[in-house]
Write a protein that binds this DNA or RNA. Structure first.
Lengths: 109, 109
DNA sequence: CCGACATCCATAGCGTAGATAGGCATAGCG
DNA sequence: CGCTATGCCTATCTACGCTATGGATGTCGG
């Protein structure tokens, strides 16, 4: 009876864009980074991640490139585009407004 | 185009329980109160609200009673139960953990 | 050497939950 | 009398993350 095991719906794209803002990463590394930065609070399942990355590609928010990782393995590296950065800022703003609105209710007397 | 026009998924139950903590309210008034407390940022559609209230009733988190409103109208008033209060505290804790985890990522260098 | 395990990419189908779109009814007001 | 706001409710749609599954490659202990 899971309320929501993993991520709050609507935040996955924002979080992916956010971790890609600092440096290009491949899929698996994106999931690990989100997990690490949240101290294991948030987990990105692969069945969520890869479809999401397809969507980001389709919208032109990221560009993908097959490269060789430092472990000598073929990996698909995703880089944030300028459109992606703009989208990130929009989504962060939307999220912040929501979070503030909810906080206003929860903290109301 | 906002990703989510209304509420962030997973928060509706928490918000209903929260506004009922202060006083019993009928459905329509719940929606208005959430909207007002959030300065019109959050809107609860009736098609979301009433099914959610059924769920709260089924779980024993609220009790319903037909009463007469101050406008002389028959309304169904919902009152928070002790189980509902406990549920509210759980959900607020879960939400806060999520919000903190997301903030940690968004605010990471 | 080999099997176990972690890394890595990807898709199909499912479940949950809010949104949309209706239906029905009453009170107040011009 | 219509019009608007109030008030309750259900059927159906849709968005989105999850589960399950499949496959491939590198590493390391025994």
């Amino acid at each position: 009876m899971p309320i929501y095991a993993g991520l709050p719906p609507g935040t996955l794209v924002m979080l992916i864009l956010r971790v890609l803002r600092q440096e290009p990463l491949h899929g698996y590394a994106i999931a690990q980074k989100i997990r690490a930065l949240s101290s294991d609070q948030l987990s990105v399942e692969e069945g969520s991640l890869y479809p999401a990355l397809q969507k980001l590609l389709a919208n032109g928010w990221v560009k993908a490139e097959w490269t060789t990782s430092d472990t000598g393995r073929q990996v698909r590296s995703y880089r944030l585009t300028s459109r992606g950065l703009k989208q990130l800022e929009t989504e962060q703003g939307d999220y912040q407004r929501m979070a503030d609105a909810i906080a206003a209710i929860v903290e109301s007397t």
